[in-house]
Amino acid sequence: MSETLLVSIYIFVLATFVGIEVISKVPPLLHTPLMSGSNAISGITLVGSLIAAGEGHGGLSVILGTIAVVMATVNVVGGFLVTDRMLGMFKKDTKGKKELNAS
C-alpha cells in the first residue's frame, strides 16, 4: 500500500465523520436545499474532467473529458443556482413587513 493511498484513506475516513457531524445539524426545513447544494459540491469531479479535457493528448481522452466537463458543469452551475433561488424564498415572519415580502 502506497503512502499516497494511506493518506487518502485517512482523509476519506475523517471526511466521513466531518460529514456526519455537519449534515446532522441541518434542520429538515432545509433538506431540499441541502440536497441540491451538496449535489453541486459533488460536481467537484469537474476538476478532474478539466484536466482530462485539456491535456491535449487528443483522441478519446479529450472527447470523454469534454463530455465530462459539460455534465459536471451542468451539475455545478445548476445546483448552486437553484439552491440559491430556493434559499432566497425562505423568509422569517416579520409581522408587519410580511405583506411587503409578498410578491
Partner: peptide
C-alpha cells in the same frame, strides 16, 4: 486521480445522501 479535494467533497456528499 489522487486528488484530495475530490475525496473530501465526494465523501461529504456521500454521507449527506446517506443521512437523508
Amino acid at each position: 486521480l489522487s486528488n484530495n479535494v475530490l475525496i473530501i467533497a465526494g465523501t461529504l456528499v456521500g454521507t449527506s445522501g446517506l443521512i437523508l
